[in-house]
Simulated scan of single mutants.
Amino acid sequence: MALLELDGVSKAFGSLKAVDNVSFKVEAGEIFGIAGPNGSGKSTLFNTITGIPFGPDRGTIRFDGVEIQKLRGHRIARLGLARTFQRETAFDGLTVFENALMGSAFGGQQTVEAAASAAEALEFVGFSAQDFGRPAGELSVFQRKCLMLATAIAMKPKMLLLDEPASSLTKPEIDSSIELIRRTAARGITILLIEHVLTLLMSLSQHLLVLNEGSVLALGDPRTVVADQRVVEAYLGSRKVA
């Protein structure tokens, strides 16, 4: 049984069909990539899956065998589904540790367990104990992305949805992100990944889905998908993957 299954999921804003009849499955343990041009509905799709800030208008979403399309975001999170966002979201007035603690508490953990989960997640992504007391507002873009990932990992999720983790990063930072995502998957966390950086998608994904104007344009093996002429025209322009 797939860990995540979408069947005919749609979301509209007035006459705009942001997500239009999208169906796919993600198996437990895999890294599943999602690509598409700006405005193709990728982040809206994440919103509908997690219920933050809204669910779908139509369709069925099953996570670990449970229908979640009508559940509130915190209930979905406590079933084991966490996410990050395009922007480096953090509470700037809180410390690094307090941010991660917010994640473990939101996931339903009690005080002692929540603190231990937060500390372990921060160390996993590369923060030292000396960093725990730093205000999040002092961090670099890459460090803020690491903090956002640690906050999600502290929830102890079964699946993690990553929304453009490589955006605004340098090449060395992208390489570090690829390795960090690999290590996260090695913890047994299934990953659903939105990204524009093709090197990252091609390095990590077992399956690749391409959205265009809210609909599924292509789905399958990443190298086959990026060679699809429809994908080349809609997303890659004249570029091809060697």
Rank of each mutant, 00 (worst) to 15 (best):
L161Y: 10
N38F: 14
F91M: 08
A150S: 08
A185P: 02
P165L: 12
A12H: 10
G108Q: 08
S205F: 09
F46G: 02
Q110N: 14
T170D: 09
E173Y: 06
T44R: 08
L219Y: 12
K17R: 10
T199P: 06
M155R: 03
R62M: 11
A136G: 12
P222K: 15
A100K: 01
D228V: 05
S15C: 00
F127G: 05
G80K: 03
A129E: 15
G51C: 04
Q229W: 07
L71K: 15
G103L: 09
A152S: 14
G133Q: 12
A105L: 15
A116S: 12
L160R: 07
A105P: 00
S23Q: 09
L200V: 12
T89S: 11
V225Y: 14
T95S: 15
L45Q: 09
V210H: 00
T190R: 04
M155D: 10
R87V: 15
I31V: 15
E5A: 14
D92I: 14
A227G: 15
V9P: 02
V226Y: 06
I191L: 13
R78L: 08
L6E: 08
S40D: 13
R230P: 01
P135H: 14
F142I: 04
G137W: 02
L79C: 09
R239P: 00
M155W: 06
T48N: 07
R75V: 02
A154E: 11
K17N: 04
E88N: 14
